[in-house]
């Protein structure tokens, strides 16, 4: 049964309810849109709702925005666009590879080897910094590499204790999104500034921000893509295996095209995160690679409550996502797998 089947009064009630909700969700967007066309007196002189009737629309706010009176708007827009799109592309690709591996190949990680990693990484860092007097970044990088190598080695031996499998690995991925981002943001800022001292500039660079976004997006990508890939028919890949198609071609030539709807959905979700992200951008960038959300949030403190200008800037941040969702939404249609099996 659908709303279309409702007749008479009940149909109208359903329609009215839906319309009320529609108006409720759309009103903020409408409010931002008309505010960006108002002059300052129209904004502060009590609420006005209808252009040309309540108030006379003006393009002043938009002219200000694009003329650069309100900061390096173009530069921020392009920083946002480049960082958001490239980190979403890389995160989707990397995360899909990880998800594919987690679906198709069984992994066994011993708890002992995880503990070895933790102990060696922490102990090595403290040893390097406090006893051997390495700079903190050098100490942590060396400790990390040694710990990784050791734990991989330890995992090869048949040691007692719990053995973790693919589900545990996926949960470990997802668990990284369970704590508040501010915890990571501080740590990342410290790490990046230490790396800066080593001569590798990470704060306020394309690489630094993009890497942080990729790392923070991966858990969601792995989580989403795992389900999409698990739904793909295994026989198709087996047919390719028997046909002597190398594993990497099976992934790029067969698995990725079959997983296209899932890939696009995941990409859009990731892009929404990287485009709107505020906290990391605030911590890790200042001028060169500052992104739009930081610029918009700063408007209020820089020039006071100029809502007309803030509205125009906010709209510029919203519109690209609407366009992308509209364009890619068409490609997300299902039914792509029909004909493969059965």
């Amino acid at each position: 049964m659908s709303v279309r089947d409702l007749k008479g009064k009940r149909g109208w009630l359903a329609f009215a309810g839906c319309f009320a909700w529609f108006a409720f969700t759309l009103f903020p967007l409408y409010w931002v849109a008309i505010t960006s066309f108002k002059t300052p007196p129209d904004v502060v002189g009590g609420p006005t709702y209808l252009p040309f009737i309540d108030f006379q629309p003006s393009l002043n706010a938009w002219r200000d925005l694009f003329s650069g009176v309100r900061g390096e708007f173009y530069s921020n827009f392009w920083s946002s666009a480049i960082v958001a799109v490239s980190s979403a592309v890389f995160a989707t690709l990397l995360g899909t590879m990880a998800a594919y591996a987690l679906v198709r190949f069984p992994f066994r990680v011993r708890l002992v080897s995880g503990l070895v990693f933790f102990a060696v990484a922490m102990g090595g860092f403290l040893l390097g910094r406090d006893v051997l007097d390495f700079p903190p970044a050098t100490a942590s990088i060396i400790a990390f590499c040694v710990a990784l190598a050791l734990s991989v080695l330890v995992n090869r031996f048949n040691l007692p204790g719990k053995v973790m499998n693919n589900d545990d690995i996926v949960f470990w991925f997802v668990s990284q999104r369970l704590f508040p981002p501010i915890v990571v943001a501080f740590a990342l800022f410290l790490l990046y500034s230490e790396m800066g001292k080593m001569g590798l500039k990470m704060t306020d660079t394309y690489g630094g921000l993009t890497l942080a976004y990729i790392a923070f997006s991966l858990p969601i990508v792995v989580w989403l893509m795992r389900d999409f890939i698990a739904a793909l028919p295994l026989e198709v890949e087996e047919a390719a295996l028997v046909d002597n198609v190398p594993q990497w071609r099976i992934f790029f030539g067969i698995v990725l095209p079959m997983a296209r709807p899932g890939l696009i959905a995941t990409f859009v979700i990731t892009l929404a995160f990287t485009w709107n992200e505020f906290l990391f951008a605030l911590f890790l960038t200042n001028s060169e690679w500052q992104t739009l959300p930081v610029l918009i949030a700063g408007q209020n403190s820089q020039r006071g409550d100029e809502w007309w200008a803030i509205s125009a800037a906010a709209l510029v941040a919203i519109i690209p996502m609407i366009v992308i969702a509209g364009l890619l939404g068409r490609l997300m249609r299902s039914g792509l797998l029909s004909g493969a099996v059965k």
Partner: peptide
């Protein structure tokens, strides 16, 4: 060369 019950064609 193997032929599967579910055909296993490449759908794209």
């Amino acid at each position: 060369a193997m032929v599967f019950q579910s055909y296993a064609l490449y759908p794209h």
